[in-house]
């Protein structure tokens, strides 16, 4: 677990020789020691494919690799930061919400359409967040950003959680998501034009929700 929350909006990461961190470009606030920051063209070890996928999807969040020996403080835009520790499971997160993550995590891109069918594609259109979601898998930690504080809502069998797509941050576990239209929801959530849907998450896992309907 290389991340320590210093405040609700700033994490500190230990960088050790032989270990790599990835972070969003421009998210370094300060560092001490001998630390190198390199723009990542490939986006990580498995990244070439992932990044190509993302380029197509226009969801290219520039990353940089962080290597060396020292301490780095990360934060971005004053957004709240939430640290998620993975123990072999998979985190699904929009790439622009990723502040920094362990290089030990396998990074991939998931076409949401394959999971949620047609509705998954709608979801991309609804949220404007793209059809592709970044996946991180393995053992390690990721620091994600949210507008406002983050609420963790467990998802259990028979207890689905419904989330405003705009407030959705990330999820993990064996979770199916689909867009649904609760009766009346369309009228209720008519803040924007396309928010006629709610995201229904079912299965077993956890969903991270931010205290805001604003996108980052």
């Amino acid at each position: 677990m290389p991340f320590t929350l210093l405040t609700s909006r700033m994490v500190e990461a230990q960088v050790l020789p032989g270990q790599t961190l990835f972070s969003q470009r421009g998210a370094m606030l300060a560092y001490r020691g001998d630390v190198r920051f390199t723009p990542s063209i490939t986006g990580g070890q498995r990244g070439v494919r992932g990044m190509i996928g993302r380029r197509i999807a226009d969801e290219d969040t520039p990353l940089m690799t962080v290597e060396g020996q020292g301490t780095v403080m990360f934060g971005h835009g004053g957004h709240h930061v939430h640290v998620i520790d993975l123990v072999g499971d998979t985190l699904y997160v929009e790439s622009d919400r990723l502040l920094a993550f362990d290089g030990s995590l396998r990074q991939g891109t998931m076409f949401m359409g394959s999971q949620g069918g047609v509705m998954g594609m709608v979801r991309g259109q609804v949220t404007g967040q793209g059809l592709f979601t970044t996946t991180l898998e393995g053992h390690g930690s990721a620091a994600v950003m949210a507008h406002g504080g983050v609420l963790e809502l467990p998802i259990d069998q028979g207890r689905p959680v419904h989330v405003d797509p705009q407030a959705y941050v990330a999820h993990r576990g064996d979770v199916r998501n689909k867009l649904s239209t609760a009766i009346g929801w369309r009228e209720m959530v008519g803040r924007g034009s396309g928010e006629a849907f709610q995201l229904e998450l079912s299965g077993t896992g956890m969903v991270y929700v931010q205290a805001s309907e604003e996108k980052l």
């Binding site: 405003d164 009228e187 209720m188 959530v189 008519g190 929700v209 205290a211 309907e213």
Partner: peptide, 28 residues
């Protein structure tokens, strides 16, 4: 963020202010 537990009763809220819910809800 505000969590409201409902047991058959109701609340009035600003449109679009709900970010998530668990259980059975109807909206009017």
């Amino acid at each position: 963020m505000l969590a409201v537990d409902l047991t058959g009763d109701s609340v009035k809220a600003k449109n679009g202010a709900m970010v998530a819910y668990e259980g059975e809800m109807t909206f009017k």
